[in-house]
Design a protein around this nucleic acid. Structure first.
Length: 429
RNA sequence: GGAGGGAUGGCAGAGUGGCUAAAUGCACCGGUCUUGAAAACCGGCAAGGGCUAAUACCCUUCUAGGGUUCAAAUCCCUAUCCCUCUACCA
């Protein structure tokens, strides 16, 4: 959420900045709502003030035993006016709120111009693409030999789910364990276990709601009296972890906060059929290790650079070639001010595929979350900045390991950092 | 599942209809003292919003949402969360 103050002061500048991401915003409509709000608010507060004063007069009159009948008569009329004005104001304010909640974040100045992923800018590349002097298979074919099974998943759930048994299930788990250990032991994150079902407030806090309900799986908890409570399956571990800090005032000495979590992610991906749908790439349920940081405003862009290297660290350790992309404004997610995507090379499909997305949200989420700290210098409460990044998407990492480390005999070389997690296994065959 | 109790500022904790945005303590900030620190003493200290050049001033907020009342932290209803006893249980 953008700051209301900023919107009031310089709505045109905000609208202009949002054009960069191809979000068009009706300035005139907002301006009218806003001036309406102002008029109504002043009126309402004046009426409220009047009534407060009169009520005090009545209180005093009563205390000294005077007759208050005529005073009560006067105030009745005032109350009617006040209530009318109040509900009017509420209406306007909720209208304004709806608009503000659906406005995306302003891109950072270092974000390239552009409309779609074609305009993203490659920042760096790492690793040598493997040379395969044999017929390269993709992970679906390779996986089938080691226990990756989509047909059984169709039976028990439907399309876009997977079942893994045996060696590949072990490899999948090994990847998760490795990532968690690396981030908590080497990169300085505190491991967190969190709920996979979250309430509406949490999703508003991180920006998935109100705009993107269609992407979520929604569940209903039925109470005894027929009331229902809505909970959503998390689309990413970012939601529960970032919301741990909702409505909190963080001690300055505790900053920065760094958490790593392993959770499944559930995405309905409504309507996103087409590309990349084969195999494990786009699933309704996948595992992810997620990094979350909460930092002071002046530290956030430095933190984004470092956080991204933590995700890169995993790719490098697993010997997976990748490139780092600076997303253009048009391709940025709703809440992000700047995002680096890491794309891993998939020789089975001859493409780079997104495996991590590292974003700085500035105070966009923190404002919704009311996540603040007390600045010692100013002695004021200030919003913190939030960041997160996948470190990494486990399913896609599995794909990358299979495809990059395949050998002519269809065996898979296990990267050395994983071997201890695989009971010492060096080659999977 | 049954029976009770509770939710107040950064924290702890008073407060049962108007003089309470809220005692007190801790924490925090400023000062006195001190070579320096601690202790002691003095002073300050909720958040959000409106208006404003900035003050002043005004409004809102005592878990949330409704209600009663001229007036609600305080009374009523509902929800959420927490605690105690009790039963059951992986």
């Amino acid at each position: 959420m953008l700051s209301k103050k900023q919107l009031r002061l310089d709505i045109k500048a905000v609208a202009n900045a949002l054009k960069k991401r191809y979000f068009y915003f009706d300035v005139d409509q907002f301006f009218e709502l806003e001036s309406n709000r102002k008029k109504n608010q002043i009126e309402t507060e004046n009426l409220q003030n009047l009534r407060n004063m009169q009520s005090k007069v009545i209180g005093k009159a009563k205390a000294s035993g005077e007759d208050v009948k005529s005073l009560l008569k006067n105030i009745a009329d005032l109350s009617t006016k006040l209530n009318l004005s109040k509900s009017n104001l509420q209406l306007i304010q909720s209208e304004i709120n709806v608009i503000i909640l659906s406005m995306p974040n302003i891109p950072h100045h270092s974000v390239p111009n552009g409309k779609s992923e074609e305009d993203n800018i490659e920042v760096s590349k790492w690793g040598k693409l493997g040379k395969y002097d044999f017929d390269v298979k993709d992970h679906v074919d390779l996986g089938a030999m080691y226990g990756l099974d989509f047909e059984t998943a169709v039976k028990i759930s439907g399309a876009r789910f997977s079942v893994m048994t045996g060696k590949i299930a072990r490899l999948h788990r090994a990847l998760t364990q490795f990532m968690l250990d690396r981030h908590s032991e080497v990169n300085g994150y505190t491991e967190a276990y969190v709920p996979y079902l979250v309430n509406t407030e949490s999703l508003i806090g991180t920006g998935q709601l109100p705009k993107f309900e269609a992407d979520l799986f929604k569940t209903y908890l039925h109470g005894e009296k027929g009331e229902t409570k809505t909970l959503y399956l998390i689309p990413t571990g970012e939601v529960p972890v970032t919301n741990m800090m909702r409505d909190m005032i963080i001690k300055e000495s505790d900053l920065p906060l760094k958490f790593v979590t392993h959770t499944p992610s559930f995405r309905s991906e409504a309507g996103s059929y087409g590309r990349y749908t084969r195999g494990l790439i786009r699933q309704h349920q996948f595992e992810k290790v997620e990094l979350v940081q909460v930092v002071k405003a002046q530290d956030s862009y430095q933190a984004l650079e470092v956080l991204t290297t933590h995700a890169e660290d995993i790719l490098q350790a697993l010997e997976l070639p990748y490139r780092k992309i600076n997303l253009c404004a048009g391709d940025l997610g709703f809440s992000a001010a700047k995002t680096y995507d890491l794309e891993v090379w998939l020789p089975g499909q001859n493409v780079y595929c997104e495996i991590s997305s590292c974003s700085c949200f500035e105070d966009f989420q923190a404002r919704r979350l009311q996540l603040r700290y007390k600045n010692k210098e100013t002695n004021k409460l200030e919003l913190l900045h939030t960041l997160n990044g996948s470190g990494l998407a486990v399913g896609r990492t599995l794909v990358a390991v299979l495809e990059n480390h395949q050998q002519a005999d269809r065996s898979i070389k296990i990267p050395s950092v994983l071997q201890s997690y695989m009971g010492g296994l060096e080659v999977m065959n």
